[in-house]
């Protein structure tokens, strides 16, 4: 693996809320153009890892290098300009805004208005149900539609790295399968890198290239998704099934 292949490198990352650290000495490497699944039980620190990467939680130690540049002291608002998009847990749709306003919000920072408009059109083509509900408020959408909206809004920014937190939460299996297929399609067609936090291990492993398992704020194993999926002993040891 060369330095050019790596889009995100985390070394000795420690972070948390208040005095108690949630993440402890986390090391993580994500290759560009791959889907990396972050797995683990509730409270393992998966969401905190994403929130620290996107700057919402300040690390107390360690280093985050994204696209070859350290991220220390980069404001949250700037990260999207550098190509990092974070779709938070619970989808983060602004319930009071319409579908169209939510999507436009994703590209407001962009100076290239023409390309932002093009990206918006592409998102509507990708998610047809959203095109039919442009004027509906976020709170009027189904769970699946909200997930599409959150994903679509992130894509309007044309990210290089997508941090995706629990996209399957509360969704029907058919919708989950559609979302996973979409992630694979985006990776293959645009070279998008995805760091996918999931409790639904089977779904995550069905689409991921790499997998890391977290427990009590630490990464306990990092391997290929194929290996974790196929090696029953390994799966049993780290994921309990």
């Amino acid at each position: 693996m060369t330095a050019d292949d790596v889009i995100l490198q985390v070394k000795g990352l420690t972070a948390g809320y208040g005095a108690a650290p949630v993440l402890q000495e986390v090391d993580l490497t994500v290759r560009a153009g791959t889907i990396a699944a972050v797995l683990g039980a509730n409270g393992a620190g998966k969401t905190t890892l994403l929130r620290t990467l996107s700057g919402l939680v300040r690390p107390s130690g360690g280093e985050i290098v994204y696209g070859g540049q350290p991220l220390r002291d980069v404001p949250v608002e700037q990260l999207v300009r550098r190509g990092m998009a974070h779709v938070p847990e619970g989808r983060g749709v602004v319930a009071e805004l319409t579908v169209d306003e939510n999507l436009r919000l994703g590209g407001l920072w962009r100076r290239d208005r023409e390309d932002a408009a093009k990206a918006l059109t592409e998102v509507y083509e990708l998610f047809e149900p959203l095109a039919q509900r442009r004027r509906s408020a976020g709170h009027q959408l189904s769970g699946g539609e909200r997930q599409m909206l959150a994903l679509g809004r992130a894509l309007v920014a044309r990210p290089k790295l997508l941090l995706l937190d629990e996209p399957s939460l509360g969704l029907a299996p058919r919708v989950i399968a559609q979302i996973m297929a979409l992630l694979r399609q985006l990776r293959d067609s645009t070279g998008l890198t995805v760091l996918l936090v999931e409790q639904n291990v089977r779904s995550a492993l069905s689409v991921a290239d790499e997998a890391v398992v977290m427990s009590l704020g630490r990464i306990v194993t990092a391997t290929s998704a194929d290996r974790l999926r196929d090696d029953e002993e390994l799966r049993h040891a780290y994921l309990g099934f």
Binding site: L56, G92, V94, E101
Partner: peptide, 17 residues
């Protein structure tokens, strides 16, 4: 739009730049 988004969902708005 930025003002409304910031008022309703400040954290999400920050993530969106």
């Amino acid at each position: 739009l930025r003002m409304r988004a910031s008022a309703f969902a400040p954290e999400v708005s920050r993530l969106l730049g």
